[in-house]
Design a protein around this nucleic acid. Structure first.
Lengths: 215, 215
DNA sequence: AGACACTAATCAATCGTTTGATTAATTTTG
DNA sequence: CAAAATTAATCAAACGATTGATTAGTGTCT
């Protein structure tokens, strides 16, 4: 049946995603991936053409679901700029937990300046999300809701950077935070609400103009 | 003369540091490193034993200079907690620019969970700096200078994460920021003051209790 | 029969490392 | 001091292993 083939391809992609994230593109071998997936080595090339094709397939599979999620937030009418940022942090916090393997993969690929074709693709896609954030922030500034001297670009760098740091260096972060970030339960029950609360407090303090009578 | 030998080893380490940072540990080949350094391939094994030994030597060379820099700040007596944070950001901002190649290398190694012997070493050394920051922050909270609900650990994650994001994904960051992060002049004249100012503003807003008459 | 799914065997290329020989530098000896 | 002996530094070549990829062939369906 057709279903089996799709399931098999998806299974390969699942395994490849995990191994690529753990070992990096170069560190992961096709034998390791095919072996762990329980398929013949040649199947990787049969299905995906090449190792790079497999890598690209792993990324493209997820990337589609990444799109369009944030545009709804940005385009919402009756929500304040700060409300949009809060929504963004909520959604972002959820994705941190569920897709941290993939996040690591993305970040790893972006760290390398080579393979520009793929890197460009990834960067362009991520820039969509970034642009949405820019727009929200700039609107907030223009409406006077956010402070005038806000560094819009750096705010985004902090948003992504803080999350990436924790997700990509789990051993370091676990030592710092005092509990095991790699434990799914801890991640879900402890870290997820924590980073959401933290980012909201952090950016509220930095972004939002207090409703005082100054000036 | 003895000088030449030392210079040569140092030259190899310089090249290896750059290539490891650019290509990752697995992506960099010994042929590439020796070729670019202008030495025979066998010299790498002759000097450093193995590829991993070379990698370790690259890291250990820098790590020593990393130590003890921040302890002076933490132990200063007549400076406020916020003043210490400002000093930290200043020094940290300087290091970002000058050692970004090495920073990338460190972060890359920490992202992989394998090679635990080396990773543990790196993590422990970084934890020294982290602990200094913790202490400063906690002192500020205890003295009432910083807000009581400050998430000390996450502040550090933001500090490192924001910087790492920009340094490790230069192409992405350059697109975001609108200028070329990889250009040394831009990095020095534009980005360095910018990230310093931004981090100070960000953390001042989040950390410092306003001297108002509330409560 | 013929398109598709799959496998074992094999390919050339590249990997990190080792070798044996050669040169340069240093130390020991007369 | 100079010749001899020893050590250190450097090299081209080759090692076995592993890499990603391909081939030729075997079933398996419709």
């Amino acid at each position: 049946m057709d279903k089996d083939k799709i399931d098999k391809k998806d299974h390969i992609l699942d395994v490849a995603e995990r191994i690529f994230a753990e070992m990096g593109f170069d560190g992961a071998s096709t034998r390791m991936i095919s072996g762990e997936a329980g398929v013949n080595m040649a199947m990787l090339n049969y299905y995906f053409g090449s190792k790079e094709g497999l890598f690209l397939a792993v990324i493209e599979r997820k990337i589609t679901s990444f799109q369009n999620i944030l545009q709804n937030i940005g385009n919402a009418e009756n929500i304040s700029a700060w409300g949009k940022i809060e929504s963004y942090i909520e959604i972002y916090g959820e994705r941190v937990v569920n897709n941290n393997c993939f996040q690591k993969l993305l970040y790893q690929e972006m760290s390398m300046n080579r393979r520009t074709e793929l890197s460009d693709k990834i960067r362009n896609i991520l820039m969509n999300s970034v642009s949405e954030l820019f727009k929200i922030l700039q609107d907030g500034i223009d409406s006077g809701e956010f402070k005038k001297d806000t560094d819009v670009q750096m705010v985004v760098a902090t948003m992504y950077g803080t999350k990436n740091f924790v997700v990509n260096t789990p051993l370091m972060s676990s030592t710092m935070l005092g509990y095991d970030i790699q434990d799914d339960k801890v991640l879900e029950e402890q870290f997820k609400p924590r980073i959401k609360t933290y980012l909201k407090n952090l950016f509220k303090a930095y972004l939002v103009n207090e409703n005082d009578n100054s000036k």
